[in-house]
Design a protein around this nucleic acid. Structure first.
Length: 262
DNA sequence: GTGAATGTTAACAG
DNA sequence: CCTGTTAACATTCA
């Protein structure tokens, strides 16, 4: 655990790939006993005292610290962060104290899960899980024909782990306008999208580890289309009103009227 | 100093 | 009851 004595992560970008990095940081604590826990999360800290971590899992943006009969779920939300064997000036939301190490989570949503994880998580929805299923995502999309793809790519029940960066980069790379309707996508386009979202998430992970994530943005926070060399549009899109960066020229908008109502 | 944002949900209004 | 808006979150940065 020596390499974890000092671990700092400033810009988290807490989408699925960053949570996998956190998972790697926490992995050495599997089998370790929590001596005590503290923080300002409104949870029963006594419950963690003396308990051994049986497993560490992730589902989308959820970090899951498993114990024999329950799980601690941590969500970094927008601004969450974590430190191992180091503290910030602000109080941690949750600190886990081990014999030799401390793990601190800041500005996170922390809660206990009492149900078996398999009962509440659809692992096939996680775009970075081994069980990720494009076929199941396709089926879920077919149940929401009027949904815009920009909203679909942020829907955690369909694409768990995808966030606004993954949304924008996936749409740019598969050349789909964010306001396209899911039911209007030609089958080949839909397949390309389903493939790209998972592929880009793993590229994100690789680039994040290298520290080159931003250098590889093609649309997110970009001013100009790298293909057309014309200005990119930046606008809030979809029901979720989240920022989209897109090229009107090379990202086709599929929004032909739905036959009857799909 | 200001504003915007990688995300989610409770609370509230209509 | 359903839908949409707002605020909140010991943040960080351009």
């Amino acid at each position: 655990m020596a390499q974890l004595l000092y671990y700092q992560c400033k810009k988290l970008m807490p989408e699925g790939p960053s949570i996998l990095i956190l998972h790697e940081v926490l992995k050495p604590f599997k089998g370790k006993k929590v001596i005590s826990a503290s923080g300002y999360a409104k949870i029963d800290y006594k419950r963690l005292k003396g308990k051994t971590i049986t497993d560490l899992k992730t589902w989308g943006k959820h970090t899951l610290i498993c114990f024999k009969d329950f799980t601690v779920r941590i969500h970094l939300l927008m601004f969450g962060s974590y430190l191992v064997n180091k503290t910030k000036k602000i109080n941690p939301k949750l600190s886990l104290h081990f014999t030799k190490d401390d793990v601190n989570f800041y500005m996170s949503d922390v809660k206990f899960i009492d149900e078996p994880l398999d009962d509440i998580y659809d692992w096939s929805a996680d775009i970075m899980n081994k069980k990720w299923s494009a076929a199941k995502a396709k089926k879920k999309l077919s149940e929401h024909p009027k949904m815009m793809v920009c909203d679909a790519l942020l829907d955690q029940d369909i694409f768990a782990g995808s966030g606004n960066i993954i949304k924008n980069e996936t749409l740019f790379r598969s050349r789909i306008h964010p306001e396209s309707l899911v039911s209007s996508l030609p089958p080949a386009k839909l397949s390309a999208l389903l493939k790209e979202v998972s592929k880009y998430a793993f590229d994100f992970l690789k680039w994040k580890k290298e520290g080159t994530l931003g250098k590889h943005f093609q649309a997110y926070e970009q001013k100009e289309c790298p293909r057309c060399r014309i200005p990119l549009h930046k606008r809030l899109t979809g029901k979720g009103k989240r920022q989209s960066y897109f090229c009107e020229n090379c990202q086709a908008k599929y929004s032909s009227k739905l036959k009857a109502q799909g």
